[in-house]
Design a protein around this nucleic acid. Structure first.
Length: 806
DNA sequence: GAGTTTGAAACT
DNA sequence: CAGTTTCAAACTC
C-alpha cells in the first residue's frame, strides 16, 4: 500500500508541478497577479476561452477567477469533477477529496489499523494547515506573505479553473459521470498523500492554496487591492476553506467526540459540532469581511460548505462509527450520510418524507424528536431517498417539495387536510420508494397535488427558505440571512391546505381514473366533496386505481409528478424570500395556451403560479409570473417576448459582464423578487420527456429518473438563455444549482435565444448528476454565457443533447 | 347553476 | 409526431 501510495503521491505533486499552473507560478511573480480583475472581456474569453488560453494568460483568468472561483466554490459541492478535471485546480477540492478519501480509507483502514492515519492527519492538519488557514482568514495581512506565495501557486490554478469551468459546465454531465473515476483517483492520490505524512504538508499546502485561491479570487473579483483580498475574501471562500481546513479539525473533534459519545448520538453530536465549528469559521469570516457580497457568498459558501460538510459528515460519521462501535456497516454509513445530507438541506425534508411514509403521525413528531427520529427513519425510507434522490424527488414533485420543505409545521397542517383524503398509496407496490419520492410521493403524502401546483410556488419558496435557514443555522450564519419567515410559510401552508381542502373533482365520464380527474392526478382518492360520477377513485377500488395508475405511468412516468417544478434547491440567499417566489418554479411540460394568454387558470403555468418557460408552446404569452420568452415575471407584463430575445442576443456581450457581477451582486441582488421574479426560478422546465419520450419505467422513475428529470429540467430550458438578458439586468443571481445547470444548458444548448417564440426548445435533458444539482446552494450563474452557441463547441456540448445546442 | 370556453389528456 | 377527440376545469353570465 505504502509504496504505491508514495508513487501516487508523487504523481499528484508532479501534476501540480507539471501543470501549467506551476509553470505559471514559477514564471509569474507570486504576487497577486493580478487580479486584474474582472474584465468582462474575460468572460467572453471564458466562454470562448480554451483552457490553453487560460493558461497562457493568467491575468485574464484571475479576473474570471474571482467569479469563477466563487462559482466553482459554489459548484464545488458538485464539483468533484472540477477537481478532477483539472488536477491543478483541485486544491480546494482536492483537499476535500483528500479528506473524503481519508474518511473512506478510514473505514477500511480502521480495520487494518489504518484508522490511525486520520488521527495523524488531523493533528497535523490541524496544527499546520488549519492554523494557517484560520490565520489567513483572521489576519490576512499577517498571512500575506504566505498568501502571496500561495497565491502565486493558486493563481495559475485559478487561471486554469476558468477554462475548466467552462468545460465543466458544458460537460458537467460527462464529467460527473467520469468524475467518479477521476474522483476516486484523486482521492486515492490525496489519500495517499495524506496517508503519508507528507499529506499533512500537502494538506497544508492544499489548504493554504485553497484559501489563497479563494482569497485571491475574492480580491480579484472585488478589488485590486491584494491585501484586501484577505479581508475581502469571500466569506464563502473562507467558509469553504474553513470547511476544508476544518475537516481535519472536525474529524479530530468528531473522533474525540464520537469516542466519548458513541454510536448514533455521537453522530449527531459530531454533526452539530461540525456545524458549530463551521459556524465559528463563518463567524470569523463574517467578522473579517462583511462585504455586501458576503451574504450571498456566505450563502453560497454555506451551500458549498454544506456539501463539503456532507462529505465531511460522512467522514466523520464513518469515524464516529468506527470510534464508537464501528457500527460500521456500510449501511450505517450510508444512513449517516443521508442524515447529514438531510440535515444540510433541512430537517423539514426529512420530516416530510416521514410524513409521507408514516403518514400524518410521523409528521406530527415534535421537533425535538425529529432529529433523532429522522435519523432513524431516514435510513429506512429514504433509503431510497438519498438526499440527492430526495431532492430529485422534490424536484419532480413540487408537491413533495412543498410538503417536505415545509417541514413539520406545514406538514402537520397539511396532513390533516389531506388526511381527509386518502392518498393513493402505491406503497404496496412499492418499490417504490423511488416512485414515491419521485412522482408518487404526493400520493403518500397527504398533500394534495393541488396544493403543489397551486401552492407549489409558495412551498417551494418556503422550502428553499427553510433549507436556507437550516443551512444557515448550521453554519450559524443563518441569523443574518434567515429571514425566512415562518409566518409566510404558515400562511402558505394554510392556503395550500385550504386549496387542498377545496379540491374536488367533478368528473362524469372519466370515472376519476384519468388524469382529467384532479384527485386522481394528485394521487388522491376522491372524497365526499367530490361531485364525480361513477367514481372509481376510491379506496374500495384501490386495485383498479393502482392499475390505472400504472398504466398511465407506463405511458408517462411523470404523469403523476407535479406539474410545477421548482428549481429545488435554489436557496434563496439570505432571507430573500422574494426569491422563493413562485417564479422559481416552472411547469414541467409547459403550457400550450392559445387564447388565454396564460393569464387564466386555463394555463397550467399560471395556475401553478409559475412563469412560462421555453418549454411552453403558448401563444401570446402574458403570464404574469414570467413569460416563456424568458422575461421574468415581473417584467412579463409587458410581453414582448421577442424583445427579450433580441435583448438576449444583444446581451450576450453584456451578459458576460453581468454574469460576472452576479457573484457579488447577486448577494446584493437578492432580488426582491416578487413572486414573479424568475431569478430564483429555475428556468427549469422539465423537459419532461426525458428523451422526448417517456422513460420507460413508470413508477420506478423515481429516484433515478426523477433526479435526472429534475436536473434535466433545470438544464433543459435552453430558452433559459433568452431570459438571461433580463436576468442580467434584473437578476444577476441565480441559484447555484440552477446556474450550473443553466450554464450547462446554455453552453450545451448554445442557447437559442434566437427564437424566443420558438416554442419549445427542447432542453437537453441531460441528466447531469442529479444529486449535485439540488445540492447546494446556489451558484451564481454565469450569465455571461453568450447566447451564441458557437461557444459550445468548445465545451463539449456533446454531453448535452446536441439538440439543445442548436 | 347552466352554458361556454379553454387547454390538457387521451386517442388515432 | 401530428392531428383529433374527449374531458373536466375555469370562466362567464
Amino acid at each position: 500500500m505504502d509504496t504505491p501510495e508514495k508513487y501516487q503521491i508523487a504523481t499528484p505533486i508532479s501534476k501540480y508541478e507539471d501543470s501549467p499552473v506551476f509553470n505559471y507560478i514559477n514564471s509569474l511573480s507570486p504576487i497577486k497577479p493580478v487580479k486584474s480583475i474582472p474584465t468582462d472581456q474575460t468572460f467572453s474569453s471564458l466562454s470562448f476561452a480554451s483552457p490553453s488560453s487560460v493558461f497562457t494568460s493568467p491575468h485574464i483568468n484571475p479576473q474570471r477567477e474571482s467569479r469563477f472561483l466563487r462559482r466553482q466554490q459554489f459548484t464545488d459541492p458538485s464539483k468533484p469533477e472540477f477537481s478532477r478535471r483539472d488536477n491543478d485546480e483541485n486544491t480546494s477540492e482536492g483537499v476535500l477529496d483528500a479528506v473524503h478519501q481519508l474518511d473512506y480509507l478510514d473505514p477500511g483502514s480502521s480495520d487494518t489499523g489504518i484508522t490511525i492515519d486520520p488521527s495523524n492527519k488531523d493533528p497535523k492538519s490541524d496544527a499546520g494547515l488549519p492554523q494557517s488557514l484560520k490565520y489567513d482568514c483572521t489576519s490576512p495581512e499577517d498571512n500575506r506573505i504566505p498568501h502571496n506565495d500561495i497565491e502565486t501557486e493558486t493563481m495559475p490554478e485559478v487561471a486554469i479553473r476558468p477554462a475548466s469551468h467552462v468545460h465543466f459546465v458544458q460537460g458537467v454531465s460527462k464529467e460527473r459521470r467520469q468524475s467518479f473515476e477521476i474522483e476516486t483517483e484523486l482521492r486515492g492520490i490525496c489519500q495517499i498523500g495524506e496517508s503519508k505524512e507528507a499529506a499533512g504538508c500537502d494538506w497544508g499546502k492544499l489548504i493554504s492554496d485553497d484559501t489563497d485561491q479563494l482569497i485571491f479570487d475574492s480580491s480579484i473579483s472585488k478589488e485590486h487591492s491584494e491585501v484586501q483580498d484577505h479581508k475581502t475574501v469571500d466569506p464563502g471562500t473562507y467558509s469553504f476553506i474553513a470547511t476544508v481546513l476544518q475537516l481535519p479539525h472536525d474529524e479530530i473533534d468528531d473522533l474525540q467526540k464520537s469516542q466519548s459519545m458513541g454510536s448514533v448520538d455521537s453522530y449527531e453530536q459530531c454533526e452539530t459540532e461540525e456545524t458549530v465549528t463551521k459556524s465559528r469559521d463563518v463567524g470569523e469570516i463574517k467578522e473579517t469581511d462583511q462585504t455586501p457580497a458576503v451574504p450571498s457568498s456566505t450563502l453560497l459558501d454555506k451551500l458549498v460548505v454544506s456539501d463539503s460538510r456532507a462529505e465531511v459528515d460522512d467522514k466523520k460519521g464513518k469515524k464516529c462509527m468506527q470510534s464508537s462501535c464501528k457500527l460500521g456497516s456500510q449501511q450505517q454509513l450510508s444512513i449517516r450520510r443521508r442524515c447529514l445530507l438531510y440535515e444540510m438541506t433541512g430537517a423539514h425534508k426529512k420530516k416530510l418524507i416521514y410524513n409521507s411514509d408514516s403518514g400524518s403521525s410521523a409528521s406530527s413528531q415534535s421537533d425535538g424528536k425529529v432529529s433523532s427520529d429522522e435519523k432513524q427513519f431516514m435510513p429506512f425510507k429514504p433509503g431510497n431517498i438519498h438526499p440527492s434522490s430526495m431532492l430529485a424527488g422534490i424536484g419532480l414533485h413540487l408537491n413533495a417539495l412543498a410538503t417536505t420543505a415545509e417541514d413539520g409545521n406545514k406538514v402537520v397542517k397539511h396532513e390533516p387536510l389531506a388526511s381527509e383524503r386518502k392518498p393513493i398509496s402505491m406503497s404496496r407496490s412499492i418499490p417504490s420508494l423511488n416512485s414515491m419520492s419521485l412522482g408518487q410521493t404526493p400520493l403518500n403524502k397527504s398533500l394534495t397535488p393541488d396544493l403543489l401546483e397551486r401552492d407549489l410556488v409558495r412551498f417551494d419558496s418556503e422550502v428553499q427558505a427553510t433549507e436556507d435557514a437550516s443551512q444557515t443555522s448550521e453554519f450559524g450564519v443563518s441569523e443574518e440571512f434567515n429571514h425566512g419567515s415562518p409566518k409566510r410559510k404558515r400562511r402558505r401552508s394554510e392556503q395550500a391546505a385550504e386549496n387542498e381542502a377545496c379540491k374536488r373533482c367533478n368528473c362524469k365520464k372519466s370515472k376519476c381514473l384519468k388524469l382529467y380527474c384532479e384527485c386522481f392526478a394528485a394521487g388522491l382518492y376522491c372524497v365526499e366533496p367530490c361531485s364525480c360520477q361513477d367514481c372509481f377513485n376510491k379506496p374500495v377500488h384501490e386495485d383498479t386505481v393502482l392499475q390505472t395508475r400504472k398504466q398511465i405511468e407506463s405511458r408517462n412516468p411523470l404523469a403523476f409528478a407535479p406539474k410545477v417544478i421548482r428549481s429545488s434547491d435554489y436557496v434563496p440567499e439570505f432571507g430573500d424570500e422574494s426569491n422563493k417566489t413562485p417564479a422559481s418554479a416552472r411547469h414541467k411540460r409547459g403550457c400550450n395556451c392559445k387564447k388565454s394568454s396564460c393569464l387564466k387558470k386555463y394555463c397550467e403555468c399560471f395556475q401553478g403560479g409559475v412563469g412560462c418557460s421555453i418549454s411552453c408552446r403558448c401563444e401570446g404569452c402574458k403570464n404574469t409570473f414570467g413569460r416563456k420568452d424568458g422575461t421574468e415575471e415581473a417584467e412579463l407584463d409587458e410581453e414582448e417576448t421577442e424583445e427579450t430575445c433580441d435583448k438576449n442576443s444583444l446581451d450576450t456581450s453584456s451578459q458576460y459582464d453581468v454574469v460576472l457581477r452576479g457573484e457579488e451582486e447577486h448577494s446584493d441582488l437578492v432580488p426582491p423578487v416578487t413572486p414573479s421574479s424568475e431569478i430564483s426560478r429555475p428556468l427549469v422546465q422539465l423537459p419532461f420527456t426525458l428523451g422526448g419520450g417517456k422513460p420507460p419505467q413508470s413508477s420506478l422513475l423515481s429516484v433515478g429518473s426523477s433526479s435526472q428529470m429534475y436536473t434535466s429540467q433545470k438544464f433543459g430550458p435552453s430558452g433559459f438563455i433568452c431570459r438571461l438578458p433580463k436576468f442580467e439586468k434584473h437578476l444577476e443571481m441565480i441559484p447555484e444549482d440552477e446556474t450550473p445547470e443553466i450554464l450547462q444548458g446554455t453552453l450545451a444548448g448554445g442557447v437559442k435565444s434566437t427564437s424566443p417564440n420558438s416554442k419549445r426548445v427542447s432542453p437537453p435533458h441531460h441528466k447531469i448528476g442529479s444529486t449535485r444539482a439540488w445540492r447546494s446552494g446556489r451558484k451564481l450563474i454565469l450569465r455571461s454565457i453568450p447566447s451564441f452557441p458557437s461557444l459550445n463547441p468548445c465545451q463539449e456540448s456533446s454531453d448535452r443533447s446536441p439538440g439543445k445546442t442548436q
